[in-house]
């Protein structure tokens, strides 16, 4: 179980370009954090930094769990459920296959059916992913989050491509995740639809 995530004076530089500097924030389990900011302010960079893909130019990130504090980026990644702005869907694979692969990759042994039902694409289980709409692919991404069993969800534009019902579903899932002690960090321009703290990024 995760307890909290603390960022202390994070500075992010890509190439020679400073993205943001001296960013500090803290999120506790059960909380949601909305990352706001103009295009290019570094929302995606911040998410990739938390995920451990990027290393900060300076500053520190600590993920506190009931097993102890984690500072290593790749170790932190083992607690993260990721919904990026690419769909990560293989057109040649069935919806069911795709989700089953992902569940096994993450060591989650369980039926994928409840997750598919929860996100409303159970009927498409046998359908090759190339026939999915953008919104359905996003729903598959949400199902992956559910299957991942990870505590810290990092969501990059979670509402993109979703219809009204889909947005409500995404908000419901986030709320439920927080209610069970999870943590959500979402980068979005839209209102999250649940109680959340906000972090505004300004270009350095």
């Amino acid at each position: 179980m995760i307890v909290s995530l603390t960022a202390e004076k994070l500075t992010c530089v890509r190439g020679d370009r400073p993205i943001f500097a001296d960013l500090s924030f803290q999120v506790a389990a059960g909380e949601a954090l909305v990352v706001e900011g103009a295009n290019g302010a570094g929302k995606t960079s911040l998410l990739r930094l938390i995920a451990g893909f990027l290393t900060p130019a300076s500053g520190g990130l600590v993920l506190n769990t009931d097993q102890g504090a984690i500072t290593d980026g790749e170790e932190r990644g083992r607690h993260i459920g990721w919904l990026g702005h690419h769909d990560a869907v293989k057109p040649q694979m069935d919806v069911g296959e795709q989700l089953e692969f992902f569940a096994r990759l993450y060591g989650a042994n369980g039926d994928v059916k409840p997750a598919l039902e929860r996100v409303g694409i159970a009927r498409q289980r046998e359908l090759p992913c190339r026939y999915l709409s953008a919104g359905q692919k996003k729903r598959l991404g949400l199902a992956r989050l559910l299957m991942s069993g990870r505590g810290l969800w990092l969501l990059d534009e979670p509402f993109a491509a979703l219809d009204t019902a889909g947005r409500a579903l995404a908000a419901d899932l986030m709320r439920a995740h927080c209610a069970t002690g999870g943590m959500v960090i979402a980068a979005t321009h839209d209102p999250l639809g649940l109680e959340a703290r906000s972090l505004k990024l300004e270009a350095a």
């Binding site: 990644g77 990721w82 990026g84 990759l105 990870r150």
Partner: peptide
């Protein structure tokens, strides 16, 4: 290209 590598990188492997 399709973002799968991000998900694979976050797996237990």
């Amino acid at each position: 290209d399709d973002g799968s590598l991000d998900l694979i990188a976050l797996s237990p492997l």
